[in-house]
Design a protein around this nucleic acid. Structure first.
Length: 317
RNA sequence: CGCGGGGUGGAGCAGCCGGUAGCUCGUCGGGCUCAUAAUCCGAAGGUUGGAGGUUCGAGUCCUCCCCCCGCAA
């Protein structure tokens, strides 16, 4: 069928590729190219690159709900609109165009984690399970009726980046199934239970700073939930030190005997051989990969060769 | 031509106002040990990112280039 695909980053790519492989007639709408990183180069969204490779027409509007966008979408005359991490709000007008409606692929088990950062937030909140949901888009923020959902466990050391990739793939499969059922007319949309709904907000820089007075598990969840970006960090004097990876330690007992008196945030062990261990609110945590200003990310044991952190204390918030 | 930090033996770093390079780890050899991630002794390994310039002499100053990183977006 004719499908308008609205999506932007990597998360949407597997879904788009699936639609291409299924032979649908496609038009892609994505965010405008943006200046990226240092220098001034404009970068194309991942979805645009994929579309161009496949020879699919690409439209880029600052806001698709403005007349220009509505016009272009209308002109394509889609049977269905699919959105996946598009990054723009749709208008009532946009939604009224396709006869089968608008289906969104969302990276959480709705009604939990509606909003902008469902994958990161699920990890940061210490969830052991998450998934993807397809839903009928309405005007609210991920509030439409649920079509299908697929669950998946979150590994104890799984990072945002890893889960992101898995959910993107899982989302593509679920979208395929969803479209098949739409075509067959066998879907029964289920309204979301508002009582169970939670909302996640975009990650702000402040959210990425580690508070070592928290329990080790909370810190670990924050670090992996922000890996590879935007990356958790800790303040040490004037420097912001990025913390890329941590591990929960099992020998808490021994550490307490040796370093029970340590201040929260103190580096109790910091050596090339034993790595970096920091005192937390309820015990200790091992930092296994970090990054100093101006440097690249390093395994902690390598970083300890040149930096003497033993006894240093990461500042509180 | 958005702002800023950095490129020094395999890795991470030091080297203040210029005088032929040092530390930690690793590597190799050996000792100790039942053994070892532990520890001791010794050794190898660098044209200091590249090209010019200033100087009696540059890792250290100036110019240009390449690469890496952070912020901002």
């Amino acid at each position: 069928m004719r499908i308008a695909f609205l999506g932007t980053p990597e998360f949407a790519v597997p879904s788009l590729k699936m639609l291409i492989a299924e032979g649908h007639e496609l038009a892609v709408f994505t965010q405008p190219d943006r200046p990226k990183d240092r220098g001034h180069a404009l970068a194309m969204p991942a979805v645009k690159l994929t579309a161009l490779e496949a020879g699919i027409p690409v439209y880029q509007f600052e806001k698709i709900r403005l007349p220009e966008g509505v016009e272009a979408l209308t002109a394509f005359m889609p049977d269905l609109t699919v959105t996946a991490a598009f990054g723009q709000l749709l208008s009532e007008e946009n939604l009224s165009i396709p006869k089968f409606g608008t289906v969104n692929v969302h990276g959480s088990l709705l009604p939990k984690y509606r909003g902008a950062s469902p994958i990161q937030t699920a990890i940061i909140e210490g969830e052991e399970e998450t998934g993807v949901t397809t839903m009928l888009t309405n005007i609210g923020m991920d509030t439409g009726d649920i079509l299908l959902a697929a669950k998946t466990p979150i590994g104890e050391n799984e990072t945002y980046g890893e889960l992101y990739t898995r959910l993107a793939e899982l989302g593509a499969e679920l979208l395929k199934e969803t479209i098949a059922k739409i075509e067959a007319g066998t879907l029964e949309p289920i309204p979301q239970d508002e009582a169970l709904a939670t909302r996640c907000r975009p990650i702000k820089k402040q959210d990425a700073q580690i508070d070592f007075s928290l329990p080790s598990k909370r810190i670990h969840d924050l670090v992996r939930g922000l890996n590879p970006a935007p990356t958790a960090f800790a303040r040490l004097g004037e420097a912001n030190i990025k913390i890329h990876e941590t591990r929960l330690v099992s020998n808490q007992q021994v550490l307490f005997e040796r370093f029970g008196e340590a201040v929260l945030g103190e580096c109790v062990i910091a050596s090339p051989k034993q790595g970096l261990v920091v005192r937390t609110g309820d015990g200790f945590i091992e930092i296994t990969e970090l990054q100093f200003p101006g440097g690249k990310r390093l395994p902690a044991k390598a970083a300890m060769n040149g930096k003497k952190l033993a006894g240093s204390v990461f500042e509180g918030l």
